[in-house]
Write a protein that binds this DNA or RNA. Structure first.
Length: 597
RNA sequence: GCUGCUGUAGCUCAGUGGUAGAGCACUUCCUUGGUAAGGAAGAGGUCAUGGGUUCAAGUCCCAUCAGCAGCUCCA
């Protein structure tokens, strides 16, 4: 409990400043730009807004910047701030703006002028020593002065970024930084960044022996080590348990199919650049599956279906392969082969709302189990390129709303954010570090039933088109477990921890008693790290602590005599000596109820 | 894919064109220790891979692979 709620893990609490924080940060971005201009005279400027945790500014420079330059720029910023008693706004006409910027060779800024809508004021903001003010095209607002306010900033990192975020445009150099009204807040933010780094699942992945990737296998392919394999097995057990309780049935589908299957499903025309190249078998092209849905449709179509068997709920932990561009693969969070916790529900239109509600309840159950807060978004019909009549879109969207209403789930609106084939509900979860992730999704699909000409016989004996619902709760196991690792900082709750209990005798002569504990625990299917070999108790404690094992049982003479154990929880908790039987009943509850620590 | 950076022992990292280094981890021996590092010794490297420059390359150059920070794109 202590660790993930420690001060460093929390987003800094912000104090009120004389101006909103975003204004400060935007102004500091200007300050940075003026410093860059002083140090690198030929610079051309892009955009420099404030963002969630700070600000950035994009520059076009002949030479690449290095980390060393950041310190120089910071220094120059402090100097300029001291000589900037006033920040002043000047309103100009569109023509004047163009002229000023063209005269300075600021081509990107000239383009920026054209982006300002007709009728809006065009303004410049100036700061710096009198007579040598530096000005930037900007809608503001800004501080009134740098010199008269106390503020604290730090430049953090360098990156490339396309002009106006379009990969067809030239690449600029971006400097990220952050700013606060107090040193304490800046320090807290930097500590938070450190904590994010410390909890990085790639780092924990190697520290805790969780997973690896290998150049020999190629980028974006994850190898699950025994420790993380154990976590995954626990999740899968929970997953199947919940799916059985909710009326889902397991299906398994092949990883490779004839290409023509994906032609019928439409993946080939819409998704080909994400799919692996075809392979020839018996002079016929085959493909590795990028999604599980076509396979489930084939099962549906294997025989006629009656309204009496609907809804059908079919679940599969299905591994899919997608080509991701080389620069985007990232640990377990963005990979080229992953396992979706997939399911498809085939139902009639009037069953839709109930089915959606059922899925929402499951999402809620899982997210509570893992301790994630979440927000749900209703994504409605996009403006163009959709399939299905307006009528069915309207009914399905209403079904999603009704479903949410029926279980008291509040939906934020994501207008026009639906897929081309139907409306959906997407979930964003918030982890222990306050970061957001998108995992769960519930999507109505009118497309595949039509493409595959799926039908069921309704009570009038007529063929009717089912609605297909795609849904994933965890998203992909790789991404989810990666997020979970960071969420817990490697301190997996007892029920899914790779090793649950470490047994540590104080002296070798206590090994016999320790061994009886190990045997009892193993007999009840606990995952026990038996540290019975000769060696120092302190070292074993340290090892167990570093491995984040939830409980250490430390036993010596007194414990052996009394049939007790000294329970040392990981982290800062107090050690207690309890009868071994008491310990057993305590952990039984932690396991059975999957208690989130 | 794009821009920039990086690749030395399992991990974290030094290494200035001239004999490959440290700490931790690991192995062995000694140590019997009541709650996060007892001591000693040992082993561990084709310096990512392939080419090039040089009398000489971990070090300089090129390519490839992989990783990192982002951008774009995504579960």
């Amino acid at each position: 409990m202590a660790d993930q709620h420690s001060a460093a893990a929390q987003m800094p609490q912000l104090v009120e400043g004389p101006f909103p924080l975003s204004t400060l940060r935007h102004s500091v971005a200007h300050l940075m730009a003026s410093a860059v201009q002083n140090l690198f005279p030929g610079v051309r400027f892009g955009f420099g807004p404030s963002i969630e945790h700070g600000f950035y500014y994009d520059f076009d420079l002949p030479e690449p910047l290095t980390e060393k330059d950041l310190a120089r720029i910071e220094k120059e910023m402090r100097r300029i701030a001291q000589h900037s008693p006033a920040i002043q706004m000047r309103t100009v006409t569109r023509e004047e703006a163009r002229k000023i910027l063209a005269g300075q060779g600021q081509d990107f800024k000239v383009e920026a002028v054209d982006l300002i809508p007709e009728g809006e004021a065009i303004t410049f903001y100036y700061h710096g020593p009198e007579g040598k003010e530096w000005g930037d095209l900007c809608e503001g607002p800004h501080l009134d002065s740098f010199k008269d306010h106390k503020f604290f900033f730090k430049l953090l990192s360098l990156a490339g970024a396309y002009w106006r975020g379009d990969e067809k445009n030239p690449m600029m150099q971006r400097i990220y930084g952050t700013a606060f009204w107090t040193q304490a807040e800046l320090d807290a933010h930097l500590a938070w960044l450190e904590e994010v780094k410390r909890r990085d699942h790639r780092r924990l992945g190697s520290e805790l022996d969780l997973f690896s990737t290998h150049p020999e296998a190629g980028a974006g392919f994850v190898f699950w080590h025994p420790n993380l394999g154990t976590v995954r097995r626990c999740l899968e057990e929970l997953w199947w348990e919940q799916h059985e309780k909710n009326g889902y049935e397991p299906v398994y589908t092949p990883h490779v199919s004839r290409e023509s299957l994906f032609a019928v499903s439409g993946h080939l025309e819409n998704y080909a650049d994400m799919m692996y190249a075809p392979m020839e078998l018996d002079e016929m092209p085959y493909r590795v599956k990028p999604m599980n849905c076509p396979g489930h449709v084939l099962i549906y179509k294997d025989r006629g279906r009656s309204y009496r068997e609907l809804p059908l709920r079919w679940a599969e932990l299905g591994t899919v392969y997608r080509y991701e561009r080389s620069g985007v693969v990232h640990g377990m969070l963005r990979v080229r082969g992953f396992t979706q916790d997939d399911a498809h529900i085939f139902c009639s239109a009037d069953q839709l709302a109930d089915e959606i509600a059922g899925v929402c309840r499951m999402v809620d159950f899982f997210m509570k189990t893992f301790g994630f807060e979440y927000t749900a978004y209703l994504a409605t019909r996009p403006a163009e390129h959709t399939i299905g009549d307006a009528d069915i879109w309207e009914r399905a969207t209403q079904a999603l709303r009704d479903a949410a209403d029926s279980i008291g789930l509040k939906l934020e609106l994501d207008e026009g954010g639906g897929a081309f084939y139907g409306p959906k509900i997407d979930y964003k979860i918030k982890d222990a570090l306050g970061r957001e992730w998108q995992n769960s999704t519930i999507q109505c699909d009118f497309n595949l039933p039509q493409r595959f000409d799926m039908t069921f016989t309704n009570h009038e004996g007529k063929p009717e088109r089912p609605i297909m619902v795609h849904r994933a709760i965890l998203g992909s196991l790789e991404r989810f477990v990666g997020v979970l690792t960071e969420h817990y900082g490697g301190r997996f709750p007892f029920w899914c921890a790779p090793h649950q209990v470490a047994v540590i005798p104080i002296r070798e002569e206590h090994s016999a008693y320790a061994k009886t504990l190990v045997d009892r625990l193993r007999g009840q299917r606990y995952r026990v790290e038996a540290m019975l070999e000769a060696g120092h108790m302190n070292k074993k404690i340290k090892t167990a602590q570093k491995a984040q094992i939830p409980f250490m049982l430390i036993v010596g003479e007194r414990e052996a005599q009394d049939g007790t154990v000294a329970v040392r929880p990981r982290g800062d908790g107090d050690q207690v000596v309890v009868p071994f039987e008491d310990f057993l009943s305590k952990i039984e509850i932690l396991r059975r109820d999957r208690v989130a620590e």
